[in-house]
Design a protein around this nucleic acid. Structure first.
Lengths: 200, 200
DNA sequence: GTCTATATACAGATAGAC
DNA sequence: GTCTATCTGTATATAGAC
């Protein structure tokens, strides 16, 4: 209360915001601690008063993202069920796309971070599996209802997740690709729903 | 001729082979020059007698890959045409998958290198566009024949490419995912052909 | 051309004054 | 808590003997 200058209001928050901007501009891996502090108008040393490392900061951003509306990048979905219903599927795709877009800085950072971690080569697959958990369950429901799927629910779910995240990463960073969000969502919905053969 | 010891036969080739092995084991970004030279049984300094940098080495590997049978990662395809024919599509998917697998070290390296280059944020999208060029042409052919596609050929082609490369990267590095190549190829074929709704 | 030893560059992290 | 200055660790790259 009564604080005029916001400069020192909350440095941690300022650093987080600056970091997000940098992640979009330069990518996570290319962003240095000094880029973040400079963008936030703080000194280098101040960073470590609030975060132990760049990865630590990312984990906090990730936690914030997960807190918000329990929305996992690819898990969020509206009412739900019956992915073979065009409206439902479209809503699902739109939710995933919009979530990705709304949290682009963190999505970018997590993606790059996962790639760069050469330690555990299977980590990306694991993250893909966990991030598409609810999607897999929906597919398993479908299968139980006697519908035939293109393949193992886990594999299909992972494929859909890979498609969304990968295309999203490439497309959302290139702001001049020339496709509107709506067009992307519509196209992906149709592709996932009826494939290349079309509905008929 | 008449050389007994192969050790000094061709250091450049030895370094390339060692690099490929390291790229698979540790990932490209995590592989240090010293990892490569050590794996090749050479001294650190020798590396620079043959390559200007790690990126330079990667570009040579990339060139080699492109020389072989003019096979772009996702461009290779058999006879061709009519992607709505199950056998043709499957052959196409299989070719892409097998090419990716056969050149896994370079695929991994190029992928990680593209991600890490925060300089040009649109580079990944550009690479996606160029690597799916022939696929896009096929789709345009289909459209000219009056068939309805899920969306713009460029966007659909890019989506397919993103699906293949991203899932391939995740899956081929995790050797314990539990899916055979055949199962993956079959599943992707069906997903791309008829989507979640199935053929009927 | 290959080696060992060393130099350069720089990001990450810390120390200590304020 | 924030700052400036500095240290450390590490990867890239070079120098110079063989």
């Amino acid at each position: 209360m009564g604080v005029r200058k916001e400069r020192s209001a909350d440095t941690a928050a300022a650093l987080k915001e600056a970091a997000k901007r940098q992640f979009v501009e330069r990518g996570y891996l290319n962003t240095k601690i000094t880029d973040i502090t400079a963008a936030a108008g703080r000194a280098t040393g101040s960073f470590y008063e609030h975060f132990a490392s760049k990865d630590d900061l990312l984990r906090e951003l990730e936690a914030e993202l997960h807190e918000q509306a329990g929305a996992g990048i690819l898990e969020q979905h509206p009412a739900d069920h019956d992915l073979t219903n065009p409206e439902h599927l479209r809503a699902h795709v739109a939710a995933a796309w919009n979530t990705m877009q709304a949290n682009l800085p963190v999505v970018i950072a997590l993606y790059e971070s996962a790639i760069a971690t050469g330690e555990d080569p299977g980590r990306l697959w694991q993250e893909l599996v966990t991030s598409t958990g609810t999607l897999r369950e929906h597919l398993e429901d479908l299968r139980r209802q006697g519908r035939s799927l293109p393949g193992d629910p886990q594999l299909v779910a992972a494929a859909m997740g890979a498609l969304l995240s990968s295309l999203g990463y490439a497309l959302l960073r290139a702001d001049d690709a020339g496709f509107s969000d709506e067009e992307v969502i519509d196209t992906l919905t149709r592709l996932l729903l009826t494939g290349l053969s079309g509905a008929e």
